[in-house]
Design a binder for these strands. Structure first.
Length: 892
RNA sequence: GCCGAAGUGGUGGAAUUGGUAGACACGCUAGACUUAGGAUCUAGUGCCGCAAGGCGUGGAGGUUCAAGUCCUCUCUUCGGUACCA
């Protein structure tokens, strides 16, 4: 057992044993206590839940992890926060659902398989096993019977089922779109596999390849998703704001420009129809379908072709767009400005995006900086149509575009009008002539779900030479991923090479040479509905048992990293709308309350020779500086940033478990910062938590030794029944602590202040001399101790179980009710009065709580220090505020 | 650029609706117990000042009897996002 005990504690234990002064029990020994209680919880099925209509339900969920190999400290923090709330809610009498599972499909499994010559499935299941064991060691209260892994056919079968239903209802469709493609590896690359426009494996240039891909029509719900952002009071504003920005609604007009000398019309979307008279040219996106038609037969044809080729090479390098200069080329054609009737040139330009609006813009150089730069570069006309109050704009001298409001000029019958009013007036005017209409544009685009990858859920469709795309038959689900496939060395999916998987009979016409779709679904699809699956994880008649979902869903409290603020959360909200649309559920929002916890951060250490160092690679010198253990050079301590393997500023949860145990680790994660803020990791801080745990431990042991529980039981009456002042004040402190901790956990999740409150109570008990013969104070101390353990039990559960048992209680502390405080014992009988003179603190004294206000004022005025500061100035006003304390402000 | 959040001692962080700024903890200092201390206990610890007192919540103004908290301007840091028409 020796290796199980933290080494530091062991060293001390041995010393003490040798000395014969202490027994082992003087310290909390996690290696002994924690596994024992974990086994107890498991043996007694304390975390198993079923629907119980008699009890109020509470569904708490933490974002499930990707089984990457090991739990990291971010998981530990996330799941500790959730576990505290769950244990609290259970003691409050709620029927709590708290499940855990695995977001088990995804690219890292494929990469690991290639690198380690294993199989993604084997790798994934091994990792799940290891991580499950770690989570159990942390003492998290999951109902493990509900565990799911999204890579199992029993799970993704229902995802395929939903896909078919969405396909049938036009909510899933296929279109051509681009992917990153590496010619050498013959594979599709994810964005993160593209490094500086090059393939991460072979460093060859990546180019864009057009493929037919599946999409979900999330844009159908753009407005609903947006509107409901304001109906999520339990979500942090920053998340709903990010979602709103992502959806990116803009209200404006769609105006139609006739191409001169051709039958074609070009619609443009603009938020500034008031500037239409200043539109002196038009720009089309290079991918715009009209570009080639327009230039055909003009002398610009060659120039345009050259430009398109150039843009194709630079396009889509994602972050890179900013690097490229705004440029364009004349298409050789003109169109007619619907307001002025003038012919204006049509350009194609690299800063216009096909994916937004209509892929074409009207360019108003005086009113848009990009258009302005473009006009300057190509010598195009700048016409001022909105004049600010002052100074007046002159197209010849202006250096930047003016985008603000003003008075309309050069705009025909609209001259003199306020430009903001003109937005609507001009749109109406153009609408009457059939040349425009009000329009709304969203930034949000449909969700592309096809992945040309192996480790994902197969898309259940068959391609038939005659019938084209045919959904597979329901009875053939799941379309199981063949688990005996070997990953291709270059990272490509083996599915298209597996004839037995690929060959299919057309479900419609029976042709034998049909081909199964070999793409798999985006892993965000799995995570968009897993929380419903937890309600009935083994249900085999559908995605979920409607009765179970009706009882448990939606999730009352969701907890996870803010990095999922947009995609995962938006897709989940979308999925609930889809299911709602199908009448499968009666709610639209999956997560009633959301907590996004902060990152876990630590300082970095850099050696001039060896780069980033792990903490154990740096040695502390006597003068508080660090040196590299390998070369002895001075180590530079960098700033505190998010823990990451690449920066080596990490702590390993396994090491923490071994050294301090689960409870100390949990305690520190909660105490160091409130959950929504970043947590700065500090070894000293962990030591502090360890010290606190042991301080309580010793206090409890001392109580057991000094208080004979056959004579004394915990006091429960009103404070007024207590004779001694010290008993009363400790009892009131206990009641106040219950109130404070309850509020901190229940309302704000501010566990750091809850813990601080308990620390205060511990400190208060420490001041009591237990060698007294006064049984009253002992009864109050017992009450303090018992409540202390109940209050701490969600935070450090093993520790509290052990002490609770030692103090003579039967069963698990989990089955105790959460303590309530006595409203008649929350106020102290003496109140502090603070006295200010002209707002500055000058004196303080105590009075009996029931002292009348005039008496308090008199006492304040009589105070020596107050008298000194007032001197002979006349008192103008006395303000008295009665809160926790009494404040008197004397204005002279 | 735009959107969002945050700036409080040597450090992490506390401060209902404006009402004692710095709870609690880390660190540090001193003492006690010790052969020993990286254990434990006790006391101290915002800054300046011998003191009286003064100054203090990124900075500058303002509202108020009273401002970390409200208003205006501004600086810095972090997060998100973008040729969005």
């Amino acid at each position: 057992m020796w290796h199980l005990i933290g080494f530091d504690n062991l060293k001390i234990c041995v010393k003490m044993l040798v000395k014969g002064k202490y027994r082992m029990e003087e310290w909390y020994n996690p290696a002994d206590v924690e596994p024992r209680w974990q086994a107890y919880w498991q043996d007694h099925h304390l975390f198993k839940v079923t629907e119980d209509p008699e009890k109020e339900k509470y569904y708490l969920l933490e974002m499930f992890p990707y089984p990457s190999g090991k739990i990291h400290i971010g998981h530990v923090r996330n799941y500790t926060i959730g576990d505290v709330v769950v244990r609290y809610k259970r003691m409050k009498g709620f029927n709590v659902l708290h499940p855990m599972g695995w977001d088990a499909f995804g690219m890292p499994a494929e990469n690991a398989a290639i690198d380690n010559n294993t199989h993604p499935a084997a790798w994934t299941y091994d990792n799940i096993r290891a991580m499950r064991a770690q989570l159990k060691k942390m003492g998290f209260s999951y109902d493990w019977d509900r565990e799911i892994a999204t890579c199992r056919p029993e799970y993704y079968k229902w995802e395929q089922w939903l896909f078919l239903k969405m396909l049938e209802n036009g909510m899933a469709y296929r279109k051509e779109s681009f992917v990153n493609w590496c010619e050498k590896c013959q594979t599709v690359l994810a964005n993160e596999q593209v490094e500086q426009d090059k393939c991460w494996r072979c460093s060859r240039p990546v180019h864009q390849k057009k493929l037919w891909q599946w999409f979900f029509r999330i844009t159908d719900f753009a407005e609903d998703l947006l509107v409901y952002c304001d109906k999520l009071p339990g979500w942090p504003d920053k998340v709903t704001v990010m979602q709103k920005n992502w959806i990116g609604k803009s209200v404006g007009s769609e105006l139609t420009f006739q191409v001169a000398g051709m039958e074609a019309q070009i619609p443009v979307f603009t938020t500034r129809p008031d500037t239409i008279f200043g539109a002196t040219f038009m720009c089309l996106a290079p991918e715009h379908p009209l570009v080639e038609t327009l230039c055909k037969g003009t002398k610009q044809e060659k120039d345009v072709a050259a430009f398109l080729e150039k843009v194709a090479a630079q396009e889509r390098s994602l972050e890179g767009l900013e690097k490229y200069e705004k440029e364009g080329v004349f298409t050789g054609r003109h169109c007619i400005n619907p307001a002025t009737g003038e012919e204006i040139p049509i350009y194609t330009a690299n800063f216009v995006l096909m994916g937004y609006g209509t892929g074409a813009i009207m360019s108003v150089p005086a009113g848009d900086q990009r258009d302005f730069d473009f006009a300057k570069k190509y010598g195009l006309e700048i016409r001022v149509v909105v004049q600010p109050a002052s100074p007046p704009l002159d197209p010849d001298t202006m250096e930047t575009a003016y985008t603000g409001p003003g008075i309309m000029v050069n705009s025909g019958q609209f001259d003199g009008m306020d430009s903001e009013k003109a937005i609507e007036t001009i749109t109406d005017w153009l609408a009457e002539q059939g040349r425009g209409k009000k329009a709304v544009s969203y930034r949000l685009r449909d969700w592309g779900i096809s992945r040309q990858r192996y480790w994902g859920a197969p898309i259940p469709v068959i391609h038939c030479p005659d019938c084209k795309v045919v959904p597979v038959s329901q009875k053939d689900l799941p379309i199981a991923l063949p688990e005996d496939a070997n990953l291709l060395e270059k990272g490509g999916s083996p599915l298209p090479t597996l004839d037995y998987f690929k060959q299919a009979v057309c479900p419609r016409c029976g042709r034998k040479d049909a081909r199964r779709d070999t793409d798999t679904m985006d892993t965000f699809v799995e995570s968009s509905w897993y929380y419903l699956r937890y309600c009935s994880p083994r249900f085999d008649q559908g995605m979920f048992d409607p009765a179970a979902v009706k009882y448990w869903a939606p999730v009352d409290q969701y907890i996870g990293g803010v990095e999922h603020a947009v995609l995962h959360l938006l897709y989940s909200r979308y999925f609930m709308r889809v299911l709602h649309h199908f009448g499968m559920i009666d709610f639209k929002e999956p997560f009633t309350r959301l907590l996004t916890q902060g990152m876990v951060c630590k300082e970095t250490m850099t050696c001039p020779e060896h780069g980033y160092l792990y903490p154990e690679e740096a040695r502390k010198e006597a003068n508080e500086t660090f040196v590299c253990t390998r070369c002895g050079k001075d180590v530079e301590i960098g700033r505190v940033i998010k823990m990451s393997k690449s920066k080596k500023n990490v702590v390993d949860p396994n090491e923490l478990l071994e050294k301090y145990g689960a409870d100390v680790t949990r305690l520190f994660c909660l105490f160091a910062a409130p959950p929504e803020r970043d947590l700065e990791w500090s070894e000293d801080g962990v030591e502090g938590s360890n010290r606190f745990i042991n301080r309580v431990w010793r206090l409890a042991l001392a109580c057991m030794q000094k208080i004979d529980t056959s004579q004394v039981t915990a006091f429960k009456g009103p404070a007024g029944d207590l004779k001694s002042q010290s008993a009363r004040s400790l009892y009131i402190k206990t009641q106040q602590t219950i109130k404070k901790v309850t509020a901190d956990i229940d309302e704000s999740f501010h566990f750091n202040t809850a813990i601080a409150a308990v620390m205060e109570l511990v400190n208060a008990v420490y001041t009591i001399d237990l060698d007294t013969s006064d049984n009253e104070i002992k009864a109050v101390v017992l009450s303090a101790m018992e409540n202390m353990l109940l209050l701490l039990s969600p935070i450090v559960p093993h520790f509290c179980e052990e002490l609770f048992e030692k103090m003579g209680h039967q069963g698990s502390i989990l089955e105790q009710s959460w303590p309530t405080f006595r409203t008649d014992s929350i106020e102290t009988d003496e109140v502090l009065v603070v006295v200010q003179v002209n707002g500055k603190l000058r004196a303080r004294f105590s009075v009996a709580a029931d002292t009348a206000e005039p008496a308090i004022k008199d006492a304040a005025l009589a105070d020596d220090k107050v008298v000194k500061h007032i001197q002979d100035a006349p008192v103008k006003k006395i303000i008295l505020v009665r809160k926790k304390q009494i404040l008197v402000n004397i204005v002279v």
